[in-house]
Each structure stands twice: as C-alpha cells, then as structure tokens.
Amino acid sequence: MARIAIDMDGVMADTTQQYINWYAERYGVQVDKATLYGQPETSGFPHGKEVIRGFLYEPGFFRTKPVIKDSQEVIKALYDKHEVFIVSAAMEFPNSLPEKLEWLEEFYPFIGWQNIVFCGSKTIVQADYMIDDHVKNLQPFKGEALMFTAPHNVNITDFKRVNSWEEVGALLL
C-alpha cells in the first residue's frame, strides 16, 4: 500500500477551465484553452493576468470548478487500494478553504476528513507519490513526483509526467 498525496487545483479541479468560463462570463470572450499552453498560469487572456488572478479572491471561484475527467473514478479506486491524502494549498485566498472543503464533500464524498490536508506550503508532505501540477510543490518532495499536465507546465521536463487520470490509474492501480 502506497501513500499518495494528490493536489486539488489543476489536478482534480479544472482551474484553467474555470478561468476560461469566468472570463467568458464577465467579458464575453471565449479563450481557447490551446492558446494557454506553455504560458504561465493566469496569463494568455486579453485583459491580462491581474484580471484572472482577481477571480481567485471572488466568492464561488473555488466552489464551482469543473471536475477533471476520470478523476473521481480513479481516485476512488486509488483510495480503496492505497493510503490517499488530498493535499491542497488553501491559505492564500480567503474563500478557498471552505469552498474547497465543500467541493470535495460534493464530488469526492468517499474521502474522509482525516485524509484532507489544507496547508500553506506543501514542503511538509511525506508520501510515496505526489501528484501535482506545480514545480514549486514537486521540487522539494522526497518521494516520486508526478507532474499532472496543465497548460502552464507543458514545457517542464524535470518530472515524470501524467497527462490524464487514466494514465495515473495505469501507473498506480
């Protein structure tokens, strides 16, 4: 049985699609996800990254993110076979902690509160695997780091990459 730490934003919850959805709703402009590949997170939108970063402070942003395809089924299978912890930075943005908890309760009701870790820095995380989309979380990790593909990290080659939950399942189940 392996201990697996799984990030939420960009791994379970589709943050990029949420930026696109909220931007379209507010500015009437539909941004193609493909145009965001290789750009820093929150960049690539016509009004600039300050507008997109502003969404992170708005009520509902974290609560209404779309679920990433196949994540529920694969995480449930991992949870049944391994020791799984959801590890998410939830201290920087005022609404993120309660909204992330509500989101998890709705979409991943099988994950008990004992297996949810909200933190500021993930440098304290000890596990066999960490699935995350950010270099800053994977670099200090002592176990096997798995980079979950997101538009902002497509050019990073320092970590073993997983492009989908189907790939995660093939690797860890």
Rank of each mutant, 00 (worst) to 15 (best):
A89M: 03
S164R: 07
F159Y: 04
L36I: 14
A90E: 08
F141G: 00
I68H: 01
W113S: 11
L138W: 01
A2E: 14
I111Q: 00
M91P: 12
G54A: 09
Q126N: 13
V87I: 03
M1R: 13
I52C: 03
M8C: 10
T35I: 13
H134G: 06
T123S: 08
G10Y: 00
S121C: 06
L171I: 09
F141A: 01
Y79C: 04
G120Q: 11
K160S: 00
V125C: 06
P140I: 07
E166K: 12
E167D: 02
K65M: 14
H47W: 15
L171K: 11
L172W: 13
A90N: 09
I156S: 14
N163E: 03
N95V: 09
F141K: 01
P109A: 13
T64K: 15
H152K: 09
L56E: 07
Y37T: 00
I111P: 00
Y19L: 12
I75Y: 04
I124C: 07
K142I: 02
A150T: 14
L171P: 07
S121E: 07
W165P: 09
V168D: 05
W113C: 10
G44D: 05
F55L: 02
W113Q: 10
S71N: 10
P66Y: 11
Q30E: 12
Y27L: 10
E144S: 07
K65H: 08
